[in-house]
C-alpha cells in the first residue's frame, strides 16, 4: 500500500501542518503557494506563447514575420496562405486519408495491444518471459529500412492502409504500460467471474475492459497522435499522391516554398508562397484537430498513466 501512502501525503501537504504547527508554517505555506502560482503561470506562458505566436504568424503577412515584428497579434492580417493551402483539392483528399489512416491504424493497434498485454499480464502463462522478450527485443533491434521495405512490398501491402497500420501495430512501450495496468487489477475479480461461468473472452470483454477505460483511452490517444503525426511510413509505401496523408502533403509544400528545387524559373510574385507563413499555417492545420481531442480524453489521460505506472 505504498501508493496509497504516497497519494495521501500528496493531498495532505496543505491543511495538516497549519493545524499542527501554527502561523509560521502557514505563512511559509502561503509563500509556497504564491511562488508555486508564479512558477506555474510562467510555465503556462512559456508553453502557450509559442502556440499563440504560431497562430499569429499564420495570419500575418510574411514581410512582418521576416522583419521580426509578429508576437501575439497578427500583423498585416491575411488569410491568403490558408486559402492557398485549402483551395487545393489534393489537400482535402490527403486530409481525409490522414483521418482514415489514423482511425484504422489506431483501432488495429488498440485491439492488438490490449490482447497482447492482457495475455502477458497472466503470471501463470507458460512462455510468458519469452513472449515479453520477443516484444522487448524489437525495442532495441530493427531489421533496418530496406529489409522492412522489401518485406512490406512482397507482402503486397504497398499503396494500401495496411502498410501504415500493420508494421507498427504494437508499440512496445504502450504494451508494457498496459500490461502493468492489467497486472494491477485484483485477481479475485476475475476468479469470481470465472466461478460465475464466464470464459476467458467473457472476462476480458465484460469485466476487465470496462474497468480499464482509463488506460484504453490513454492508449487510444497515444496511438492516434502518433499515427496522426506520422509521415514516414506513408512516404515509403505510397507511390501515388492521392494516397498520401496530409503530413506528407504539407512537408512537400514547405520544401517547395523553400525553393531548393526550381527549374530556373522565377515564381510569380503573386504566388510566392510565403515560406514563413506557410510553416505556421501547416502547424496550425495539422495540430488543431488532434489538439481538440485532448480536453475530452484529458481526465482519463492523467489517471490512466498514473495507474499503470505507479502500480506496475
Amino acid at each position: 500500500m505504498v501508493t496509497v501512502d504516497a497519494a495521501e501525503r500528496a493531498t495532505e501537504v496543505g491543511p495538516r501542518p497549519r493545524r499542527r504547527r501554527g502561523i509560521r508554517q502557514t505563512r511559509g505555506y502561503r509563500v509556497f503557494q504564491v511562488v508555486n502560482a508564479i512558477i506555474l503561470t510562467l510555465v503556462v506562458v512559456v508553453t502557450l506563447y509559442p502556440f499563440v505566436n504560431i497562430v499569429a504568424r499564420s495570419m500575418s503577412h510574411e514581410a512582418y514575420i521576416i522583419a521580426g515584428q509578429v508576437n501575439l497579434v497578427p500583423r498585416g492580417f491575411t488569410l491568403d496562405t490558408y486559402q492557398l493551402v485549402m483551395s487545393d483539392p489534393l489537400f482535402w483528399t490527403n486530409y481525409r486519408n490522414t483521418v482514415f489512416y489514423t482511425v484504422t491504424a489506431t483501432l488495429i493497434s488498440i485491439v492488438m495491444t490490449t490482447c497482447y498485454a492482457y495475455v502477458l499480464s497472466k503470471k501463470h502463462l507458460k512462455g510468458r518471459t519469452a513472449l515479453i522478450g520477443i516484444a522487448v527485443f524489437t525495442m532495441f533491434f530493427t531489421g533496418g529500412l530496406i529489409p522492412n521495405y522489401v518485406l512490406v512490398t512482397s507482402l503486397g501491402l504497398k499503396n494500401s492502409v495496411w502498410a501504415i497500420a500493420l508494421p507498427n501495430a504494437i508499440n512496445v512501450f504502450n504494451l508494457l504500460v498496459m500490461k502493468a495496468f492489467f497486472e494491477s487489477l485484483p485477481v479475485e475479480l476475475e476468479e469470481a467471474a470465472a466461478v460465475d461461468g464466464l470464459n476467458t473472452y467473457g472476462i476480458l470483454l465484460r469485466i476487465v475492459l470496462p474497468l480499464s477505460k482509463a488506460i484504453v483511452a490513454t492508449m487510444v490517444l497515444f496511438y492516434a497522435v502518433a499515427f496522426w503525426n506520422s509521415w514516414f511510413a506513408a512516404f515509403l509505401y505510397m507511390d501515388q499522391q492521392e494516397l498520401w496523408p496530409v503530413t506528407v502533403y504539407l512537408r512537400n509544400l514547405i520544401a517547395g516554398a523553400t525553393g531548393a528545387e526550381n527549374i530556373g524559373a522565377i515564381a510569380e510574385a503573386n504566388e510566392v508562397q510565403a515560406e514563413a507563413t506557410l510553416k505556421s499555417v501547416t502547424i496550425v492545420l495539422t495540430t488543431l484537430p488532434i489538439l481538440l481531442v485532448y480536453p475530452f480524453v484529458q481526465r482519463y489521460f492523467v489517471r490512466g498513466i498514473m495507474l499503470g505506472a505507479v502500480k506496475g
Binding site: 529500412l145 530496406i146 521495405y149 522489401v150 512490398t153 512516404f235 515509403l236 507511390d239 499522391q241 498520401w244 506528407v248 502533403y249 512537408r251 512537400n252 514547405i254 520544401a255 517547395g256 528545387e261
Partner: peptide, 16 residues
C-alpha cells in the same frame, strides 16, 4: 515521390 524527400526514396528503391 514528394520532392521533400526525393533522394531518400530513390536510395530506398534502388537498395531494395
Amino acid at each position: 515521390v514528394p520532392l521533400s524527400d526525393y533522394n531518400q526514396k530513390r536510395s530506398l528503391l534502388i537498395g531494395a
